[in-house]
Amino acid sequence: MIRIENLQKKLAGRDVLRNVTLHVEKGQFVALIGRSGSGKSVLLKHIAGLMAPDAGRIMLDGQNLCAARGKKLETIRRRYGFVFQSGALFDSMTVYDNLAFPLREKTSLGEQEIRKKITQGLEQVELGGVESKYPSQLSGGMVKRTALARALVMDPEIIFFDEPTTGLDPIIADSMLRLFDACRKRLNLTGIIVSHRIPQIFSVSQKVAMLHDGEIIAALCENGSIKTDNQILRQFVEGTVEGPVVYQ
């Protein structure tokens, strides 16, 4: 479904993405891991079409995302949902208006249908009674759930999560991961999750991709563990300083 081929990006003189190649199949959730500052969010923003690469291409069902502009890019983005690290909810709007905003602007739905869709969306993420609250009145977990509801309300096929469990306590973080998995199964979503929650993230992913030195080391996940002989990936997942890579 998504094919990233030899993607390169230099930022502030540093090769953040050197030669990134990654394939994501339909219905697959890929856990994107790597050290802080390794370029995971940058890669995600490239796939979402928010950043343009220096070289390489991203193919979505045969369409080159990097060459898409204007209406074509908008059509591609309509297939996406994105849950940002901070939630990226509009703080001047209530939860209801945050969810209603894309529906009012990008669909021809009436206010009754919008209300129905929002109620469904909030039920999906197990969040109720917060419609009239502002983002500043919500807890961290509620912000992430609202952000997920906003992403799902437009019925995306592909969803991206940028560190969705950062800043949450372990219990809420675990419940969020379960929620993502449930949504994936129910809505047949394809997705990429950037996360540091190792090994929990493997239980909701079918594939793991580690971004190391601007390149991808990929492995398959099964029953919550990864199948790989790659020592660099093993060392990172086990979280040990002893191994082929000297971490400073």
């Binding site: 928010l50 983005r77 994105f82 990226a88 894309p102 602007e105 990008k106």
Partner: peptide, 16 residues
């Protein structure tokens, strides 16, 4: 603040 909180990115991803 909207830029740094990724609200502008969110808007772009909504096709707005």
């Amino acid at each position: 603040i909207m830029r740094n909180n990724e609200q502008i990115d969110a808007m772009e991803l909504m096709g707005l």
